[in-house]
Design a protein around this nucleic acid. Structure first.
Length: 418
RNA sequence: GGGGGAAUGUCCCGAGCGGCAAAGGGGGCGGACUGUAAAUCCGCUGGCUAUGCCUUCGCAGGUUCGAGUCCUGCUUCCCCCA
């Protein structure tokens, strides 16, 4: 596929930037995107209150889709989340309540306006929720109209199903239906919005191709599937995991500063690839940054961090995060924009044990962990190593009105009495 | 319906003669080295008002000075036969 030279702007950009893993009909899609404005969609589960970094790549594809003159649709899986996607999961996941799903949906949808323009123009993005049509399906009608197009024989060969069966793990009937509903979504969007392309992660290939197939059998227009490569770091780890869990996109669960730090800590070998995928910098500029060798590549990492953060949280937040990092790491000063936790001045007056101070700051989960970190030389107060777990923080520890707590070299929190 | 297995540290995998806060991995965190990188090496990886106390091995009982380990019942999952 890499030798194929796309003629459409859309596929050319995606291809140059490394977004493409598989396509059901690369030439056909290219031709269509060259000749006319197409509409494409990506579906998002509502299993958590925020999207995470793994969802970013498909959001970026929608961004480029719109930039190259086409129309993106973001589909919220308000209906399908009630069923649960078995793809890539070992076990049945707990079913979420409808209320939880609704809450998640509302919490998630905001981030898309960062990447897409939902204006009323021809390329204006559309947001839909598959609960709109899925919850109205009548079981018998669905079996007759949709179900008859699905072959159990073939469904059993799909990876998501096959893996479960091979490992002798439970696959419930409700999950087994997931791919049918997702396939139907595709056909429905094709009807409603003339959508001809579904994109997603490589784990979605089976589900997407089923939709293409269903469309063919139900006589809708030619549908296309396009997937992105599974994102791993150069050392093979899955992307988006940190100490505190996933890298979330919502600022209230993962601060812009932490987000900036996540990108700043990219491995050398990934810098070029990530610049192409997660920033909108021109390729020429990226080529220059990518060519930096040795410690100079740190400059490229800062650009990556700032640009990626600006895209999600806005330029101002990105610059602030960059500045905070510069002060903290390059000057060793406590920037007042570091994440801050308020504590009561009265309690500080009485003295707060270091152990509980670090727990309050959220740097360690328990006082036991704090003790261990002290033993391992990992905790600092105002950049001074903590050696005695019984020591106490008082007013005298205030520096410019705050106490700086650090775990390791990278994680800092300011305590501020009020 | 009959027969046989399985469930372990709240991240995962996994060992565990009646003395167990429970081997070993992976992952994660911290330290050293660096460039806020990778690789490598070292330490840590139940909770607490902490030389002690409390809670953990699917659930509930029982035997025992003492149970993850033995017995009984139950739940869930898997395999074979019907």
């Amino acid at each position: 596929m890499s030798e194929f030279k796309p003629k459409s702007d859309f596929l050319r950009v995606l291809s140059e930037r490394g977004y493409i893993h598989q396509c059901s009909d690369f030439a056909g899609l290219d031709e269509k995107a060259r000749k006319e404005r197409i509409t494409a969609y990506v579906g998002y589960d509502c299993t958590a209150s925020s999207l995470h970094i793994g969802n970013l790549i498909s959001a970026m594809m929608l961004h480029w889709l719109q930039q190259t003159g086409h129309r993106p649709i973001t589909l919220m899986g308000g209906g399908t989340t009630r069923v649960g996607d078995p793809s890539g999961k070992d076990e049945t996941r707990k079913l979420l309540t409808v209320d939880q799903i609704e809450a998640n949906k509302n919490s998630i949808r905001g981030v898309f306006s960062r990447f897409l323009d939902y204006g009323a123009t021809g390329t204006g993005a559309i947001m839909v929720d598959n609960a709109e049509w899925l919850t109205k399906l009548n079981y018998i009608d669905m079996l007759r109209d949709i179900g008859r197009h699905f072959s159990i024989n073939r469904m059993l060969t799909m990876d998501s199903v096959k893996l479960r069966l091979e490992r002798e793990q439970e696959l419930s009937f409700i999950e087994f239906n997931y791919m049918i509903l997702q396939s139907y979504d595709f056909v429905e969007l094709s009807r409603m919005h003339d959508c001809c392309l579904q994109m997603g992660g490589s784990d979605q290939w089976g589900n997407i191709v089923n939709g293409v197939e269903l469309g063919r059998r139900m006589g809708s227009q030619q549908l296309y599937a396009l997937t992105t490569p599974l994102l791993t770091t150069a050392s093979g780890a899955k992307m988006g995991k940190t100490a505190s869990g996933a890298v979330w996109l919502n600022a209230d669960v993962f601060s812009p500063y932490d987000y900036w730090q996540y990108w700043r800590n990219t491995e050398d070998a990934d810098v070029g690839r990530f610049l192409k995928l997660f920033t909108i910098l021109p390729l020429a500029e990226i080529a220059r940054l990518e060519a930096l060798a040795g410690s100079e590549i740190n400059e490229a990492k800062k650009v990556l961090a700032t640009e990626a953060t600006a895209l999600l949280h806005g330029r101002a937040a990105a610059d602030e995060a960059a500045e905070t990092a510069r002060k903290t790491f390059e000057q060793g000063v406590a920037a007042d924009t570091l994440p801050t936790i308020s504590i009561s001045a009265i309690e500080l007056d009485a003295g707060i044990g270091v152990l509980s101070a670090f727990v309050t700051a959220g740097l360690v989960p328990s006082t036991g962990e704090a003790r261990r970190q002290i033993q391992g030389g990992g905790l600092r107060v105002n950049d001074e190593l903590v050696s005695d777990p019984r020591s106490v923080l008082r007013e005298a520890n205030l520096r410019d009105g705050v106490i700086k707590l650090s775990m390791g070299k990278k994680r800092h929190i300011l305590l501020k009495p009020n």
